[in-house]
Design a protein around this nucleic acid. Structure first.
Lengths: 239, 239
DNA sequence: GCCGATTTGTCCGTATGTATC
DNA sequence: CGATACATACGGACAAATCGG
Protein backbone atom coordinates (compact mmCIF):
# COMPACT_ATOMS: atom_id res chain seq x y z
CA UNK A 1 0.00 0.00 0.00
CA UNK A 2 1.54 3.27 -1.12
CA UNK A 3 1.28 6.39 0.92
CA UNK A 4 -0.64 9.41 -0.27
CA UNK A 5 2.29 11.77 -0.25
CA UNK A 6 4.34 9.36 -2.33
CA UNK A 7 1.65 9.03 -4.98
CA UNK A 8 1.36 12.81 -5.15
CA UNK A 9 5.12 13.01 -5.54
CA UNK A 10 5.04 10.51 -8.40
CA UNK A 11 2.18 12.33 -10.06
CA UNK A 12 3.90 15.71 -9.90
CA UNK A 13 7.20 14.22 -11.01
CA UNK A 14 5.52 12.70 -14.06
CA UNK A 15 3.72 15.93 -14.87
CA UNK A 16 7.05 17.74 -14.82
CA UNK A 17 8.81 15.10 -16.92
CA UNK A 18 5.93 15.11 -19.39
CA UNK A 19 6.34 18.83 -19.90
CA UNK A 20 3.11 20.00 -18.31
CA UNK A 21 5.19 22.18 -15.99
CA UNK A 22 8.28 23.19 -17.96
CA UNK A 23 11.65 24.38 -16.72
CA UNK A 24 11.48 27.76 -14.97
CA UNK A 25 7.69 27.71 -14.69
CA UNK A 26 5.74 27.59 -11.45
CA UNK A 27 3.61 24.65 -10.53
CA UNK A 28 0.17 25.46 -9.07
CA UNK A 29 0.16 26.82 -5.54
CA UNK A 30 -0.13 24.70 -2.45
CA UNK A 31 -3.75 25.72 -1.97
CA UNK A 32 -4.70 24.71 -5.51
CA UNK A 33 -2.90 21.38 -5.31
CA UNK A 34 -4.51 20.60 -1.96
CA UNK A 35 -7.86 21.06 -3.70
CA UNK A 36 -6.82 18.98 -6.69
CA UNK A 37 -5.35 16.04 -4.77
CA UNK A 38 -7.87 16.32 -1.95
CA UNK A 39 -5.26 16.07 0.74
CA UNK A 40 -4.09 18.09 3.67
CA UNK A 41 -1.68 20.92 3.58
CA UNK A 42 0.96 18.90 5.41
CA UNK A 43 0.71 15.91 3.12
CA UNK A 44 1.18 18.03 0.04
CA UNK A 45 4.18 19.73 1.62
CA UNK A 46 5.76 16.35 2.24
CA UNK A 47 5.30 15.44 -1.41
CA UNK A 48 6.90 18.75 -2.38
CA UNK A 49 9.86 18.14 -0.11
CA UNK A 50 10.52 14.81 -1.81
CA UNK A 51 10.22 16.52 -5.19
CA UNK A 52 12.76 19.06 -4.01
CA UNK A 53 15.18 16.45 -2.72
CA UNK A 54 15.19 14.84 -6.13
CA UNK A 55 16.06 18.12 -7.78
CA UNK A 56 12.78 18.68 -9.62
CA UNK A 57 11.65 21.91 -8.01
CA UNK A 58 12.76 24.73 -5.83
CA UNK A 59 10.15 26.44 -3.65
CA UNK A 60 10.55 30.20 -3.32
CA UNK A 61 8.92 31.82 -0.36
CA UNK A 62 6.24 34.30 -1.31
CA UNK A 63 6.38 33.41 -4.99
CA UNK A 64 5.72 29.78 -5.71
CA UNK A 65 7.33 26.46 -6.49
CA UNK A 66 9.68 26.74 -9.43
CA UNK A 67 10.54 23.86 -11.74
CA UNK A 68 14.32 23.41 -12.14
CA UNK A 69 14.29 20.02 -13.82
CA UNK A 70 15.54 19.71 -17.38
CA UNK A 71 15.48 16.64 -19.58
CA UNK A 72 18.92 15.08 -19.56
CA UNK A 73 20.85 15.12 -22.79
CA UNK A 74 23.52 12.66 -21.71
CA UNK A 75 23.24 9.24 -23.30
CA UNK A 76 25.75 7.25 -21.35
CA UNK A 77 25.40 5.19 -18.23
CA UNK A 78 24.12 7.32 -15.38
CA UNK A 79 24.03 6.36 -11.73
CA UNK A 80 21.98 8.23 -9.18
CA UNK A 81 19.89 7.85 -6.07
CA UNK A 82 19.68 4.19 -5.16
CA UNK A 83 19.39 2.19 -8.30
CA UNK A 84 20.28 -1.31 -9.17
CA UNK A 85 22.48 -2.04 -12.11
CA UNK A 86 19.55 -3.43 -14.07
CA UNK A 87 17.31 -0.45 -13.38
CA UNK A 88 19.99 1.96 -14.49
CA UNK A 89 20.73 -0.09 -17.59
CA UNK A 90 17.09 -0.26 -18.60
CA UNK A 91 16.57 3.43 -18.00
CA UNK A 92 19.57 4.11 -20.20
CA UNK A 93 18.20 1.77 -22.85
CA UNK A 94 21.02 -0.75 -22.95
CA UNK A 95 21.19 -4.49 -23.28
CA UNK A 96 23.14 -6.10 -20.48
CA UNK A 97 24.56 -9.38 -19.35
CA UNK A 98 26.28 -10.34 -16.14
CA UNK A 99 28.98 -12.95 -15.74
CA UNK A 100 29.84 -14.39 -12.37
CA UNK A 101 33.61 -14.83 -12.12
CA UNK A 102 33.68 -16.27 -8.63
CA UNK A 103 31.32 -17.17 -5.84
CA UNK A 104 32.53 -18.33 -2.45
CA UNK A 105 31.66 -18.42 1.21
CA UNK A 106 34.40 -16.99 3.38
CA UNK A 107 35.06 -15.72 6.87
CA UNK A 108 36.23 -12.15 7.43
CA UNK A 109 39.78 -11.86 8.73
CA UNK A 110 41.04 -8.79 10.54
CA UNK A 111 42.14 -7.01 7.39
CA UNK A 112 38.89 -7.56 5.52
CA UNK A 113 36.87 -6.59 8.57
CA UNK A 114 38.74 -3.33 8.77
CA UNK A 115 38.38 -2.62 5.06
CA UNK A 116 34.68 -3.41 4.83
CA UNK A 117 33.32 -2.57 8.27
CA UNK A 118 31.97 -6.06 8.87
CA UNK A 119 32.68 -7.77 12.16
CA UNK A 120 35.71 -10.05 12.30
CA UNK A 121 34.80 -13.71 11.75
CA UNK A 122 31.56 -12.75 10.03
CA UNK A 123 30.48 -15.26 7.40
CA UNK A 124 30.41 -13.57 4.03
CA UNK A 125 29.62 -14.40 0.45
CA UNK A 126 32.34 -13.05 -1.76
CA UNK A 127 31.17 -12.54 -5.32
CA UNK A 128 32.97 -11.24 -8.36
CA UNK A 129 30.91 -10.23 -11.33
CA UNK A 130 31.54 -8.54 -14.63
CA UNK A 131 28.85 -6.43 -16.24
CA UNK A 132 28.61 -6.28 -19.97
CA UNK A 133 26.85 -3.50 -21.81
CA UNK A 134 26.32 -3.91 -25.52
CA UNK A 135 28.82 -6.75 -25.56
CA UNK A 136 31.69 -5.00 -23.82
CA UNK A 137 32.97 -5.80 -20.32
CA UNK A 138 32.67 -2.45 -18.60
CA UNK A 139 32.03 -2.90 -14.90
CA UNK A 140 33.86 -5.14 -12.47
CA UNK A 141 32.00 -5.74 -9.22
CA UNK A 142 33.42 -7.21 -6.05
CA UNK A 143 30.70 -7.87 -3.58
CA UNK A 144 30.56 -8.97 0.05
CA UNK A 145 27.21 -10.05 1.44
CA UNK A 146 26.48 -10.98 5.04
CA UNK A 147 25.56 -14.67 4.83
CA UNK A 148 23.29 -14.61 7.87
CA UNK A 149 21.07 -12.04 6.17
CA UNK A 150 21.06 -13.60 2.71
CA UNK A 151 20.32 -17.30 3.08
CA UNK A 152 20.22 -19.56 0.08
CA UNK A 153 22.19 -17.41 -2.29
CA UNK A 154 23.40 -19.22 -5.41
CA UNK A 155 25.50 -18.26 -8.43
CA UNK A 156 22.36 -18.55 -10.55
CA UNK A 157 20.56 -15.92 -8.50
CA UNK A 158 23.58 -13.71 -8.49
CA UNK A 159 23.78 -13.85 -12.26
CA UNK A 160 20.34 -12.31 -12.55
CA UNK A 161 19.97 -9.66 -9.88
CA UNK A 162 20.81 -9.88 -6.20
CA UNK A 163 18.40 -7.11 -5.39
CA UNK A 164 15.47 -8.77 -7.07
CA UNK A 165 16.12 -11.80 -4.91
CA UNK A 166 16.46 -9.75 -1.75
CA UNK A 167 13.45 -7.52 -2.29
CA UNK A 168 11.31 -10.01 -4.17
CA UNK A 169 11.90 -13.46 -2.74
CA UNK A 170 13.20 -12.61 0.71
CA UNK A 171 11.03 -9.54 1.17
CA UNK A 172 13.95 -7.52 2.45
CA UNK A 173 13.83 -3.76 2.20
CA UNK A 174 16.85 -1.72 1.31
CA UNK A 175 16.92 1.53 3.18
CA UNK A 176 20.15 3.48 3.13
CA UNK A 177 23.18 3.38 0.91
CA UNK A 178 26.42 5.26 1.47
CA UNK A 179 28.71 5.64 -1.48
CA UNK A 180 32.18 6.94 -2.07
CA UNK A 181 33.58 7.67 -5.50
CA UNK A 182 37.26 7.69 -6.28
CA UNK A 183 39.49 7.34 -9.32
CA UNK A 184 42.13 4.67 -9.12
CA UNK A 185 44.85 3.14 -11.23
CA UNK A 186 43.99 0.03 -13.18
CA UNK A 187 45.05 -3.20 -11.49
CA UNK A 188 46.01 -6.42 -13.19
CA UNK A 189 42.70 -7.87 -12.06
CA UNK A 190 40.93 -5.01 -13.88
CA UNK A 191 42.91 -5.82 -17.01
CA UNK A 192 41.84 -9.45 -16.80
CA UNK A 193 38.19 -8.71 -16.20
CA UNK A 194 37.40 -5.70 -18.35
CA UNK A 195 37.71 -4.53 -21.95
CA UNK A 196 39.80 -1.57 -20.94
CA UNK A 197 41.16 -0.39 -24.30
CA UNK A 198 44.03 1.93 -23.45
CA UNK A 199 42.56 3.32 -20.23
CA UNK A 200 44.89 3.33 -17.26
CA UNK A 201 42.42 4.42 -14.59
CA UNK A 202 38.97 3.33 -13.48
CA UNK A 203 36.15 5.04 -11.61
CA UNK A 204 35.60 3.22 -8.34
CA UNK A 205 32.34 3.30 -6.45
CA UNK A 206 32.61 1.93 -2.96
CA UNK A 207 29.22 1.38 -1.35
CA UNK A 208 27.77 0.19 1.94
CA UNK A 209 24.14 -0.84 1.98
CA UNK A 210 21.87 -1.04 5.02
CA UNK A 211 18.62 -2.94 5.12
CA UNK A 212 15.53 -1.72 6.93
CA UNK A 213 16.74 -3.37 10.13
CA UNK A 214 19.77 -1.11 10.11
CA UNK A 215 22.11 -3.98 9.38
CA UNK A 216 24.92 -3.25 6.97
CA UNK A 217 24.55 -6.38 4.90
CA UNK A 218 26.45 -5.50 1.75
CA UNK A 219 29.71 -3.89 0.77
CA UNK A 220 30.35 -3.35 -2.90
CA UNK A 221 33.25 -2.15 -4.95
CA UNK A 222 32.38 -1.33 -8.56
CA UNK A 223 35.17 -0.56 -10.95
CA UNK A 224 33.97 1.21 -14.09
CA UNK A 225 35.65 1.93 -17.36
CA UNK A 226 35.78 5.73 -17.40
CA UNK A 227 33.92 6.40 -20.62
CA UNK A 228 30.84 4.59 -19.37
CA UNK A 229 30.68 6.15 -15.97
CA UNK A 230 28.53 9.07 -14.93
CA UNK A 231 27.29 9.82 -11.46
CA UNK A 232 24.58 12.35 -10.82
CA UNK A 233 23.71 14.05 -7.57
CA UNK A 234 21.44 16.79 -6.28
CA UNK A 235 22.36 18.56 -3.07
CA UNK A 236 20.33 21.04 -1.09
CA UNK A 237 21.66 23.73 1.18
CA UNK A 238 20.10 23.91 4.62
CA UNK A 239 18.62 20.47 4.56
CA UNK B 1 16.97 33.37 13.30
CA UNK B 2 17.37 29.62 13.14
CA UNK B 3 14.41 27.30 13.14
CA UNK B 4 13.75 24.95 16.01
CA UNK B 5 13.93 21.77 13.97
CA UNK B 6 17.29 22.78 12.55
CA UNK B 7 18.78 23.42 15.98
CA UNK B 8 17.52 20.05 17.16
CA UNK B 9 19.08 18.45 14.09
CA UNK B 10 22.42 20.12 14.83
CA UNK B 11 22.26 19.08 18.45
CA UNK B 12 21.54 15.45 17.67
CA UNK B 13 24.17 15.39 14.93
CA UNK B 14 26.78 16.69 17.37
CA UNK B 15 25.77 14.20 20.03
CA UNK B 16 26.23 11.40 17.52
CA UNK B 17 29.58 12.71 16.31
CA UNK B 18 30.75 13.17 19.89
CA UNK B 19 30.05 9.53 20.60
CA UNK B 20 27.13 9.95 22.99
CA UNK B 21 25.08 7.77 20.65
CA UNK B 22 27.51 5.30 19.07
CA UNK B 23 27.18 3.31 15.88
CA UNK B 24 24.42 0.69 16.03
CA UNK B 25 22.87 2.13 19.20
CA UNK B 26 19.41 3.64 19.44
CA UNK B 27 18.87 7.29 20.22
CA UNK B 28 16.13 8.08 22.77
CA UNK B 29 12.58 7.66 21.56
CA UNK B 30 10.50 10.41 20.02
CA UNK B 31 8.52 10.83 23.22
CA UNK B 32 11.64 11.29 25.32
CA UNK B 33 13.23 13.73 22.90
CA UNK B 34 10.03 15.75 22.67
CA UNK B 35 10.25 16.11 26.46
CA UNK B 36 13.92 16.96 26.36
CA UNK B 37 13.76 19.55 23.58
CA UNK B 38 10.33 20.83 24.60
CA UNK B 39 8.94 20.75 21.10
CA UNK B 40 6.08 19.08 19.29
CA UNK B 41 6.43 15.60 17.90
CA UNK B 42 6.12 16.92 14.34
CA UNK B 43 9.00 19.30 14.82
CA UNK B 44 11.14 16.56 16.25
CA UNK B 45 10.21 14.29 13.36
CA UNK B 46 11.36 16.93 10.91
CA UNK B 47 14.72 17.13 12.67
CA UNK B 48 14.96 13.34 12.48
CA UNK B 49 14.21 13.35 8.77
CA UNK B 50 17.09 15.76 8.17
CA UNK B 51 19.33 13.56 10.28
CA UNK B 52 18.30 10.62 8.16
CA UNK B 53 18.91 12.42 4.88
CA UNK B 54 22.44 13.12 5.98
CA UNK B 55 23.06 9.46 6.69
CA UNK B 56 23.35 9.69 10.47
CA UNK B 57 20.44 7.50 11.48
CA UNK B 58 17.94 5.02 10.21
CA UNK B 59 14.56 4.87 11.91
CA UNK B 60 13.08 1.39 12.27
CA UNK B 61 9.37 1.20 12.78
CA UNK B 62 8.40 -0.35 16.09
CA UNK B 63 11.96 -0.41 17.39
CA UNK B 64 13.64 2.95 17.43
CA UNK B 65 16.04 5.23 15.62
CA UNK B 66 19.32 3.49 14.93
CA UNK B 67 22.63 5.30 14.54
CA UNK B 68 24.45 4.28 11.34
CA UNK B 69 27.07 7.02 11.32
CA UNK B 70 30.71 6.07 11.71
CA UNK B 71 33.67 8.42 12.01
CA UNK B 72 35.43 8.56 8.65
CA UNK B 73 38.93 7.20 8.47
CA UNK B 74 39.77 8.68 5.11
CA UNK B 75 42.32 11.46 5.19
CA UNK B 76 42.09 12.86 1.70
CA UNK B 77 39.95 15.53 0.18
CA UNK B 78 36.29 14.69 0.57
CA UNK B 79 33.43 16.39 -1.20
CA UNK B 80 29.84 16.01 -0.12
CA UNK B 81 26.53 17.79 0.31
CA UNK B 82 26.94 21.40 -0.76
CA UNK B 83 30.26 22.58 0.45
CA UNK B 84 32.57 25.27 -0.71
CA UNK B 85 36.15 24.47 -1.50
CA UNK B 86 37.32 26.30 1.62
CA UNK B 87 34.88 24.52 3.92
CA UNK B 88 35.94 21.15 2.58
CA UNK B 89 39.61 22.06 2.86
CA UNK B 90 39.26 23.20 6.44
CA UNK B 91 37.26 20.17 7.43
CA UNK B 92 39.98 18.03 5.93
CA UNK B 93 42.61 20.02 7.79
CA UNK B 94 44.58 21.31 4.84
CA UNK B 95 46.24 24.59 4.01
CA UNK B 96 45.07 26.02 0.74
CA UNK B 97 45.74 28.77 -1.72
CA UNK B 98 43.90 29.77 -4.84
CA UNK B 99 45.43 31.29 -7.95
CA UNK B 100 43.30 33.08 -10.51
CA UNK B 101 44.54 32.23 -13.99
CA UNK B 102 42.05 34.31 -15.91
CA UNK B 103 39.11 36.58 -15.27
CA UNK B 104 37.02 38.00 -18.09
CA UNK B 105 33.56 39.23 -18.95
CA UNK B 106 32.12 37.48 -21.98
CA UNK B 107 28.86 36.90 -23.80
CA UNK B 108 27.51 33.38 -24.29
CA UNK B 109 27.52 32.20 -27.90
CA UNK B 110 25.32 29.38 -29.13
CA UNK B 111 27.82 26.67 -28.32
CA UNK B 112 28.50 27.86 -24.80
CA UNK B 113 24.81 28.38 -24.15
CA UNK B 114 24.16 24.80 -25.13
CA UNK B 115 27.01 23.43 -23.05
CA UNK B 116 26.19 25.37 -19.89
CA UNK B 117 22.44 25.86 -20.03
CA UNK B 118 22.66 29.65 -19.88
CA UNK B 119 20.63 31.73 -22.32
CA UNK B 120 22.37 32.76 -25.50
CA UNK B 121 23.81 36.29 -25.29
CA UNK B 122 23.84 36.14 -21.49
CA UNK B 123 26.65 38.18 -19.96
CA UNK B 124 28.96 35.89 -18.03
CA UNK B 125 32.08 36.10 -15.96
CA UNK B 126 34.49 33.43 -17.05
CA UNK B 127 36.99 32.54 -14.36
CA UNK B 128 39.79 30.04 -14.31
CA UNK B 129 41.30 29.15 -10.99
CA UNK B 130 43.79 26.65 -9.71
CA UNK B 131 43.49 25.30 -6.18
CA UNK B 132 46.61 24.40 -4.29
CA UNK B 133 46.63 22.08 -1.34
CA UNK B 134 49.82 21.78 0.67
CA UNK B 135 51.71 23.47 -2.12
CA UNK B 136 50.57 21.29 -5.01
CA UNK B 137 48.28 22.37 -7.84
CA UNK B 138 45.49 19.82 -7.59
CA UNK B 139 42.22 21.30 -8.79
CA UNK B 140 41.53 23.24 -11.95
CA UNK B 141 38.26 25.18 -11.89
CA UNK B 142 36.53 26.75 -14.84
CA UNK B 143 33.66 28.85 -13.71
CA UNK B 144 30.85 30.75 -15.42
CA UNK B 145 28.85 33.21 -13.33
CA UNK B 146 25.81 35.14 -14.48
CA UNK B 147 26.96 38.76 -14.40
CA UNK B 148 23.51 40.19 -13.75
CA UNK B 149 23.30 38.25 -10.51
CA UNK B 150 26.85 38.87 -9.31
CA UNK B 151 27.57 42.58 -9.63
CA UNK B 152 30.95 44.00 -8.72
CA UNK B 153 32.93 40.81 -8.93
CA UNK B 154 36.70 41.31 -9.02
CA UNK B 155 39.72 39.01 -9.30
CA UNK B 156 40.58 39.87 -5.70
CA UNK B 157 37.24 38.57 -4.45
CA UNK B 158 37.50 35.51 -6.61
CA UNK B 159 40.91 34.70 -5.14
CA UNK B 160 39.40 34.42 -1.69
CA UNK B 161 36.01 32.78 -1.99
CA UNK B 162 33.19 33.51 -4.37
CA UNK B 163 30.66 32.00 -2.04
CA UNK B 164 31.69 34.14 0.91
CA UNK B 165 31.11 37.19 -1.27
CA UNK B 166 27.75 35.95 -2.50
CA UNK B 167 26.39 34.82 0.84
CA UNK B 168 28.16 37.40 3.00
CA UNK B 169 28.34 40.67 1.09
CA UNK B 170 25.50 40.25 -1.37
CA UNK B 171 23.26 38.30 1.00
CA UNK B 172 22.47 35.76 -1.66
CA UNK B 173 21.33 32.30 -0.62
CA UNK B 174 22.45 29.20 -2.42
CA UNK B 175 19.67 26.65 -2.58
CA UNK B 176 20.19 23.74 -4.95
CA UNK B 177 23.22 22.28 -6.63
CA UNK B 178 23.20 19.56 -9.28
CA UNK B 179 26.42 17.76 -9.90
CA UNK B 180 27.68 15.22 -12.37
CA UNK B 181 30.89 13.27 -11.92
CA UNK B 182 32.86 11.80 -14.76
CA UNK B 183 36.38 10.64 -15.44
CA UNK B 184 38.07 12.20 -18.43
CA UNK B 185 41.40 12.17 -20.20
CA UNK B 186 43.89 14.83 -19.28
CA UNK B 187 43.93 17.79 -21.67
CA UNK B 188 46.87 19.99 -22.47
CA UNK B 189 45.22 22.71 -20.41
CA UNK B 190 45.17 20.34 -17.44
CA UNK B 191 48.88 19.68 -17.93
CA UNK B 192 49.61 23.40 -17.91
CA UNK B 193 47.53 24.14 -14.84
CA UNK B 194 48.07 21.18 -12.55
CA UNK B 195 50.89 19.19 -10.97
CA UNK B 196 49.71 15.98 -12.56
CA UNK B 197 52.70 13.71 -12.01
CA UNK B 198 52.14 10.77 -14.35
CA UNK B 199 48.35 10.75 -14.19
CA UNK B 200 46.58 10.59 -17.51
CA UNK B 201 43.01 11.06 -16.31
CA UNK B 202 41.21 13.52 -14.05
CA UNK B 203 38.01 13.40 -12.02
CA UNK B 204 35.63 15.99 -13.42
CA UNK B 205 32.81 17.49 -11.40
CA UNK B 206 30.34 19.43 -13.48
CA UNK B 207 27.96 21.48 -11.36
CA UNK B 208 25.02 23.82 -11.80
CA UNK B 209 24.09 26.03 -8.87
CA UNK B 210 20.72 27.68 -8.27
CA UNK B 211 20.17 30.56 -5.88
CA UNK B 212 17.09 30.95 -3.72
CA UNK B 213 15.34 32.79 -6.57
CA UNK B 214 15.60 29.67 -8.68
CA UNK B 215 18.07 31.30 -11.04
CA UNK B 216 20.87 29.10 -12.28
CA UNK B 217 23.65 31.58 -11.73
CA UNK B 218 26.73 29.40 -11.81
CA UNK B 219 28.15 26.58 -13.88
CA UNK B 220 31.38 25.03 -12.70
CA UNK B 221 33.75 22.46 -14.04
CA UNK B 222 36.28 21.21 -11.52
CA UNK B 223 39.05 18.97 -12.73
CA UNK B 224 40.74 17.06 -9.90
CA UNK B 225 43.93 15.09 -9.77
CA UNK B 226 42.67 11.57 -9.00
CA UNK B 227 44.59 10.88 -5.81
CA UNK B 228 43.05 13.88 -4.09
CA UNK B 229 39.52 13.31 -5.12
CA UNK B 230 36.83 11.64 -3.04
CA UNK B 231 33.13 12.16 -3.36
CA UNK B 232 30.75 10.98 -0.70
CA UNK B 233 27.03 10.47 -1.00
CA UNK B 234 24.15 9.08 1.04
CA UNK B 235 21.07 7.85 -0.76
CA UNK B 236 17.79 6.76 0.72
CA UNK B 237 15.35 4.34 -0.82
CA UNK B 238 11.76 5.52 -0.92
CA UNK B 239 12.49 9.20 -0.44
C1' DG C 1 -0.86 -17.24 19.17
C1' DC C 2 -2.82 -13.30 21.33
C1' DC C 3 -2.85 -9.02 23.70
C1' DG C 4 -1.17 -4.75 25.26
C1' DA C 5 2.62 -1.43 25.60
C1' DT C 6 6.03 0.96 22.98
C1' DT C 7 7.76 3.20 18.91
C1' DT C 8 7.83 4.93 14.41
C1' DG C 9 4.87 6.37 10.10
C1' DT C 10 1.16 8.91 8.04
C1' DC C 11 -2.41 12.25 7.86
C1' DC C 12 -5.32 15.97 9.25
C1' DG C 13 -6.59 20.79 10.85
C1' DT C 14 -5.12 25.04 12.55
C1' DA C 15 -2.33 28.96 13.76
C1' DT C 16 1.39 32.01 13.03
C1' DG C 17 5.58 33.82 10.71
C1' DT C 18 7.88 35.64 6.59
C1' DA C 19 8.63 37.01 1.86
C1' DT C 20 6.68 38.73 -2.50
C1' DC C 21 3.88 41.54 -5.17
C1' DC D 1 -1.25 48.04 3.21
C1' DG D 2 -3.59 43.89 1.87
C1' DA D 3 -3.60 39.57 -0.67
C1' DT D 4 -1.01 35.59 -1.88
C1' DA D 5 2.30 31.95 -1.21
C1' DC D 6 5.58 29.29 1.14
C1' DA D 7 7.77 28.03 6.10
C1' DT D 8 7.39 26.64 10.62
C1' DA D 9 5.17 24.81 14.60
C1' DC D 10 1.63 22.70 17.38
C1' DG D 11 -1.59 18.98 18.83
C1' DG D 12 -4.35 15.15 17.91
C1' DA D 13 -5.68 10.75 15.73
C1' DC D 14 -4.89 6.40 13.82
C1' DA D 15 -2.01 2.86 11.34
C1' DA D 16 1.85 -0.40 11.30
C1' DA D 17 5.67 -2.80 13.24
C1' DT D 18 8.03 -4.75 17.28
C1' DC D 19 8.51 -6.95 21.58
C1' DG D 20 7.50 -9.12 25.92
C1' DG D 21 4.37 -11.50 28.87
Amino acid sequence: MKSIYYEIFESLRDRIEDGEFPYQSYIPSEAVLVEEYECSHNTLRKALSVLRLHGYVQPIQGKGVLVIWQPSRGADFVLGDIETFKEAAERNGMSTTTKVRSFELIRADAELADATGFAEDAELYRIERVRHLNGQALIYDINYLLASVVPGLTPQIVERSVYEYLEGTLGMHIATSKRTIRVERVTSADRMALDLLDYTMVAVVHGQTFNSDGVMFEVTTSRHRPDFFTFHDTAIRGY
